[in-house]
Simulated assay, not measured.
Amino acid sequence: MNSLINYLSCGALWLGLAVKAPDLLRHRHDPYLRAICAVLGLAGLCFLLGAPPTVGAVNRLSGVPNLAAPLTYAAITGYCAASQVLVVHWRGGPRVHRTARRWTLAYAAVVLGIAVTFALGDAPVERRTDLDTYYATTPFIAEMIVLYLVAHLTAVTVTTVSALRWARQVRGGLRAGLTLLGAGALCGAGYSLAKLVAVSARWSGRDWSALDTAVSPVAAGLGALLIVVGVLVPLVTPRVAEWRRASHAYARLGPLERALDDLLDRRALRLPRPRPASPATLLMWRRTSIHNALGRLDAYCDRGLYDRTRADTLAATGDPELARARAWAAVILDALRREAGPGEAPPPGAGRPPAPSPDPATLARIADVFAGAGRAPAASAVPRGRTTAGAA
Score class of each variant (00 low, 15 high):
residue 217 P to F: 08
residue 241 A to Q: 14
residue 238 P to M: 06
residue 192 S to W: 06
residue 208 W to N: 03
residue 242 E to P: 11
residue 246 A to K: 03
residue 249 A to Q: 15
residue 196 L to R: 11
residue 254 G to Q: 10
residue 234 P to S: 05
residue 244 R to L: 10
residue 207 D to G: 11
residue 220 A to H: 10
residue 196 L to H: 06
residue 204 S to N: 13
residue 202 R to K: 13
residue 189 A to H: 04
residue 245 R to V: 08
residue 205 G to S: 12
residue 247 S to R: 06
residue 190 G to F: 04
residue 203 W to E: 05
residue 209 S to I: 07
residue 209 S to G: 13
residue 202 R to H: 10
residue 214 A to G: 08
residue 247 S to A: 09
residue 248 H to S: 07
residue 234 P to D: 08
residue 252 R to C: 06
residue 227 I to V: 12
residue 184 G to Q: 01
residue 198 A to Q: 14
residue 228 V to G: 05
residue 212 D to Y: 06
residue 247 S to L: 04
residue 183 A to D: 04
residue 228 V to C: 06
residue 199 V to G: 13
residue 227 I to N: 10
residue 191 Y to L: 07
residue 201 A to V: 10
residue 253 L to M: 04
residue 199 V to A: 11
residue 245 R to Q: 09
residue 210 A to L: 15
residue 206 R to C: 08
residue 228 V to F: 01
residue 206 R to W: 12
residue 221 G to S: 09
residue 221 G to T: 10
residue 196 L to V: 04
residue 199 V to L: 07
residue 245 R to G: 02
residue 244 R to T: 09
residue 190 G to N: 11
residue 207 D to W: 11
residue 252 R to Q: 15
residue 203 W to Q: 12
residue 192 S to Y: 10
residue 230 G to R: 03
residue 245 R to S: 06
residue 249 A to L: 05
residue 223 G to N: 03
residue 210 A to K: 11
residue 234 P to A: 11
residue 184 G to I: 02
residue 186 L to M: 12
residue 206 R to Y: 10
residue 210 A to Y: 15
residue 197 V to P: 09
residue 217 P to L: 03
residue 239 R to I: 06
residue 240 V to H: 04
residue 224 A to C: 00
residue 251 A to C: 09
residue 252 R to G: 13
residue 198 A to M: 08
residue 229 V to H: 07
residue 225 L to K: 08
residue 196 L to Y: 04
residue 232 L to V: 02
residue 208 W to H: 12
residue 229 V to R: 13
residue 249 A to S: 15
residue 215 V to D: 05
residue 218 V to E: 05
residue 231 V to D: 00
residue 210 A to N: 14
residue 208 W to A: 15
residue 220 A to L: 08
residue 212 D to E: 09
residue 189 A to P: 00
residue 185 A to L: 05
residue 193 L to R: 03
residue 205 G to C: 04
residue 193 L to V: 13
residue 192 S to L: 01
residue 196 L to C: 05
residue 204 S to H: 14
residue 242 E to C: 06
residue 243 W to R: 12
residue 212 D to G: 06
residue 223 G to V: 03
